[in-house]
Simulated scan of single mutants.
Amino acid sequence: MTTLDLPGLPGLPVASVVEPRARFRDLVGSEWLKLWSLRSTGWSLLLGALAVVAFNVGTAWDHYRYWLQYDAASRADFVAHGMALWDAFTYNAALVLILSSAAMGVVAVVGEYGSGLIRTTFTAVPARGALMAAKVLVLTVVQVLFGAVVAGGSFWSTQAVLSARGIGLPITHPGALRIVVASALLAPVCAVVGMAVGALLRKSAVSIVGAFVLLLLLPAVLTERRHLSAVLAHATPLHAWQRLADAGPRAEQLFPWSAGGAWLVYALWALGGAVVTVLAVRRRDQ
């Protein structure tokens, strides 16, 4: 309580009003509404999902169409080594998924800077770290669901196509579930990395190019023929996904690594991206 001195009414008590701090669940709810209020969110997810599934189904259809033209030895190897899993989630589909998810992560952060809404947001919520943490959590949940739908849909549709030739595999086949989970989690990992790049660069075009270089171009130029280059390659999400999605006969590798190491790469990139996103706004101007 405070007092207000007025003529004839000295010491009149006046209740002080203290603005309550926004609870974290309120921030999460706000960011959820903000994300889905953008028309581009739904379209980005829909078009990204269709493109990814199309790449995978197209590869499975190619094997279905030309199956009878393969020689007997090739067909036997295909079945014996479970190579139908290669169609469950292809390399080209992974590239599309990485670009789509990273771009959405960039836009989730940079979009507010471009429109100037970030000034209003930070004025309403001075706790910038909590605000960005809520943004990371919301986008991560959306991308986990997106990745699960895309990876699960790709597996079901590709194996359904191949089953018409009697060569489709169930989800219980060794390595099948790992491919689906690894492909699904690739989406949130790359989305969070995109958010980190956007929080650092704050320009849409520059941030998307930066995410492209970091997640796609850099892994493409790293070779596994040299030890240092192989170590750096293994530390990227794309190569980690390749290791986890490796089904069928494995080629001889100069510097082999474990699936556990690939899962660790996923975790470190996701954690690092979240930390950078939260800390990048704390000591910088709007």
Rank of each mutant, 00 (worst) to 15 (best):
G114Q: 15
S115L: 08
S115A: 15
G116T: 07
L117E: 09
L117G: 14
T120I: 00
T120R: 13
T120N: 15
T121M: 12
T121G: 04
T121W: 11
F122D: 13
F122E: 05
T123I: 01
A124H: 05
A124E: 00
V125R: 10
V125C: 04
V125Y: 14
V125G: 07
V125A: 12
P126N: 06
A127D: 15
A127F: 03
R128C: 09
G129M: 11
G129T: 05
G129L: 11
A130P: 11
L131R: 05
L131A: 13
L131F: 13
M132Y: 05
M132K: 08
M132F: 13
A133W: 09
K135D: 02
K135Y: 03
V136L: 11
V138N: 03
T140Q: 03
V141F: 12
V142H: 08
Q143W: 12
Q143K: 04
Q143N: 14
V144N: 06
V144F: 12
V144A: 13
L145G: 15
L145R: 01
F146E: 05
F146R: 01
A148N: 07
V150E: 10
V150I: 13
V150A: 09
G152D: 02
G152M: 08
G153H: 07
G153P: 04
S154Q: 06
F155N: 03
F155A: 00
W156C: 00
W156L: 15
W156D: 00
W156Y: 14
W156F: 14
S157H: 04
S157F: 15
T158Y: 05
T158F: 04
Q159T: 01
Q159N: 08
A160Q: 15
V161P: 08
L162P: 04
G166A: 06
G166E: 09
I167F: 03
I167Q: 03
G168C: 08
G168Y: 09
G168D: 07
L169W: 01
L169K: 03
P170G: 10
I171P: 01
T172F: 10
T172Q: 12
H173W: 15
H173I: 00
H173P: 00
P174Q: 07
P174H: 10
G175M: 11
R178Y: 08
R178V: 14
I179R: 13
I179G: 12
I179T: 15
V180H: 08
V180Q: 04
V180M: 13
V181D: 03
V181Y: 07
A182Q: 04
S183T: 07
A184R: 01
L186N: 02
A187L: 06
V189Q: 06
V189F: 10
C190G: 12
C190E: 11
C190F: 13
A191L: 11
A191W: 08
A191I: 12
V192E: 07
V192A: 10
V193W: 07
G194N: 06
G194I: 01
M195G: 09
M195K: 12
A196C: 06
A196F: 08
A196D: 05
A196R: 01
A196P: 01
V197R: 04
G198D: 04
G198K: 01
G198S: 06
A199Q: 05
A199L: 02
A199G: 01
A199V: 02
L200M: 12
L200D: 07
L200S: 00
L201G: 01
L201E: 01
